[in-house]
């Protein structure tokens, strides 16, 4: 059997198993929502408020809040005809899309393939649009719109805006921003040097102060401390072992900083005392990089575990560590679990 045929067979078997699991028993990869009816009426003084019971609202809609499957099971156990908590087709589809994209990225481990490339195209497109939209709604509308077109902004986007006097100084960043967009037009691209100069100048000014104050001075001060560190025991007397330990730590720290700095100091040749100090400095730096490596591995494995947990828990429903579907597993536990479900109504993703 060729390798291609073998992989096709494996994939087909996996798909069949997936289909069986998805459409039999409690299923898998389903997302549920709870409907919340929202209705509003306008009072005599023009203020909108929630419509009281029995009053037909002027404006109404249904909000859907994600709930874990156990809430659906509990609601159905109480009233099998209820429709308030129900399956959400769009979010179920979303869950499967998330699983597909996860697998598509992981498929790169085997070899580069079209699925991975599709996922790559999706992440680039969605991320760029996400950042752009966040910039528009979180900054440009409230800050530029609120300052330069306050009444329009209040009427259409930020109805709770109280200060509608405007701030014409915001024309400065607007002008700089427009110049920045000139980058897209080759003929006038050189104009974008001006906002770039503003960004570089501001950043330089900011960093000059912060790195000097927060890093250079504060870190030097944290190093230049007495090497003898006194430690007292619970009885108030000198604890010799603790004192020796703390003093040794402080000495090692001090020596380490000086030696590592000696290694970075290239204005003198690394010979004699400086050379020996630099050599010790390298050892310190190697230990530092070793710790960095260890923690990096830790971080990456944690992220991988989170992804696997999503696949095994949220999508495949093979495990349920946080009790999202606990009602399904313990039928008849009704009331208590229903309360538990309400208290911990976290969304699926």
């Amino acid at each position: 059997m060729s390798r291609r045929a073998l992989w096709s067979l494996v994939l087909a078997v996996a798909l069949v198993l997936l289909a069986i699991r998805a459409f039999t028993g409690p299923g898998m990869g389903r997302s549920y929502v709870s409907d919340q009816q929202m209705g509003f009426v306008q009072s005599a003084d023009g203020v909108w408020e929630a419509a009281p019971d029995g009053v037909t609202p002027t404006i109404s809609w249904t909000a859907e809040l994600s709930v874990p499957p156990r809430v659906f099971y509990a609601a159905n156990a109480k009233d099998p005809k209820q429709t308030t908590v129900h399956l959400s087709l769009s979010r179920t589809l979303g869950l499967w899309a998330a699983a597909f994209f996860t697998l598509a990225i992981l498929s790169f481990l085997y070899a580069d393939n079209p699925c991975y490339k599709v996922a790559e195209a999706a992440v680039v497109g969605v991320s760029a649009a996400y950042w752009g939209i966040v910039g528009v709604w979180d900054v440009l509308v409230p800050k530029l719109g609120g300052a330069l077109l306050p009444l329009y902004t209040k009427a259409h986007f930020l109805p709770s805006l109280t200060d509608v006097t405007g701030n014409w100084w915001m024309l400065v960043p607007l002008a700089l921003g427009l110049m920045l967009l000139c980058r897209l037009v080759p003929k006038v691209a050189s104009v974008s040097l001006l906002p770039l100069a503003f960004v570089i100048g501001t950043t330089a000014g900011l960093k000059f102060i912060s790195f000097t104050e927060g890093d250079l001075l504060a870190q030097s001060a944290a190093t230049m401390k007495p090497l003898y560190v006194e430690r007292l025991g619970v009885d108030g007397a000198l604890d010799l072992a603790m004192t020796v330990g703390a003093s040794l730590k402080q000495t090692l720290l001090f020596v380490g900083v000086i030696c590592a700095l000696a290694y970075f100091y290239f204005s003198v040749e690394h010979k004699g005392v400086v050379g020996r100090a630099a050599r010790v400095g390298i050892w310190y730096l190697m230990i530092t990089f070793g710790a960095g490596f260890g923690f990096t591995v830790m971080g990456r494995i944690a992220l991988l575990a989170a992804r696997f947990e999503f696949m095994l828990d949220d999508w495949l429903w093979l495990i349920d560590p946080s009790g999202k579907r606990v009602v399904a597993l313990t039928a008849g536990a009704g009331e208590v679990l229903g309360q538990f479900a309400q208290i911990h109504s976290v969304s699926v993703w």
Partner: peptide, 13 residues
């Protein structure tokens, strides 16, 4: 001003 410019840079990006 820098912050507003940063948001415009998102759109530019």
């Amino acid at each position: 001003w820098f912050n507003v410019l940063a948001a415009i840079a998102f759109v530019l990006g």
